[in-house]
């Protein structure tokens, strides 16, 4: 029988309701200022979020490209630093002629990224995303903007393993900038921010805050790279050298973008030393 219940339950009724309400509500938001502004500002906040995500995603791809090209520029600049070049002048005489080969590339910078970092162990290793295919070999220095990272120890085709500065058995030759005093940088503190400097004779003057930089005695790192500053020092009783704590300039825990440094003359140096022996 035709009862109100039956009339309502007809599926056609729901459809008509939806259609008419949709039309009405569209009229409402498009024809009335108050309702329209409330609706469109809410819709905007909702859709704006979606739009923001789309823009972020699109920008990400853009940023990657821009980053890569900036990286190229940066590597170029680093390669042209004086510290990366080899003075190839045949003779030390003042010459007004500029010799083309007076400067050779000695230290070659290769940009890479850390794919696995480690800093909680006593001996920490790092993995980088460049390998033998890119010319990386073991025994190459790894640095980042404003500090050292470590030395490569093993390479595969696409990746390399690096002994981190935060490794108890890595010794790096560095120097105190002010006095040009060379010493060994070792990690004995178990604090990732501080390393130890050994081998500085006790009769020299030191100051807290003195800059520690890479030495030209190191064949792995170009000279003059910032390492850190003297944090504290003391002379243990009975010792003729200082016990120095160096505050690293860089935070290895946050390291991402690095440069692997290839010493072009290293094979020659090592071959020469092997031939004559280390006495």
């Amino acid at each position: 029988m035709l009862s109100p219940q039956n009339l309502l339950k007809r599926p056609g009724a729901v459809g008509v309701f939806i259609i008419l309400q949709t039309i009405s509500l569209l009229l409402v938001i498009y024809s009335n200022v108050l309702q329209g502004s409330i609706f469109f500002s809410s819709a905007n906040r909702f859709l704006g979020g979606i739009e923001q995500s789309r823009t972020n995603f699109r920008d990400r791809l853009d940023y990657k490209q821009r980053f890569d090209s900036l990286l190229l520029v940066q590597t170029e600049i680093l390669n042209q630093q004086n510290s990366a070049l080899f003075d190839n002048r045949q003779d030390y005489y003042i010459d007004s002629l500029v010799n083309d080969s007076s400067q050779l590339q000695l230290f070659e910078y290769h940009a890479a990224a850390i794919v696995k970092n480690q800093f909680t162990q006593k001996n920490n290793l790092i993995t980088l995303n460049k390998g033998s295919l890119h010319g990386i070999r073991p025994h190459m220095g790894v640095v980042e903007d404003g500090g050292l990272i470590g030395v490569t120890i093993a390479v595969s085709k696409y990746y390399s393993r690096v002994i981190s500065l935060l490794h108890s058995r890595l010794r790096t030759t560095v120097e105190i900038k002010r006095e040009k005093l060379p010493g060994s940088l070792i990690w004995k503190t178990n604090d990732p921010r501080y390393l130890n400097l050994e081998g500085i004779p006790a009769h020299y003057n030191l100051q807290i805050g003195d800059t520690i930089q890479t030495s030209d005695l190191s064949r792995i790192f170009p000279p003059g790279l910032m390492v850190g500053t003297i944090h504290e020092f003391s002379i243990p009783s009975g010792s003729s050298t200082y016990r120095i704590q160096v505050k690293l300039n860089n935070d290895l825990r946050k390291a991402r973008q690095v440069y692997i440094i290839k010493n072009r003359h290293l094979p020659e140096i090592e071959a020469l030393e092997a031939k004559t022996g280390n006495e």
Binding site: L20, S24, V28
Partner: peptide
């Protein structure tokens, strides 16, 4: 001058 409001209400 409230286009749609009363229409929607009447349908409801």
């Amino acid at each position: 001058d409230t286009l749609g409001i009363h229409a929607s209400t009447a349908v409801a």
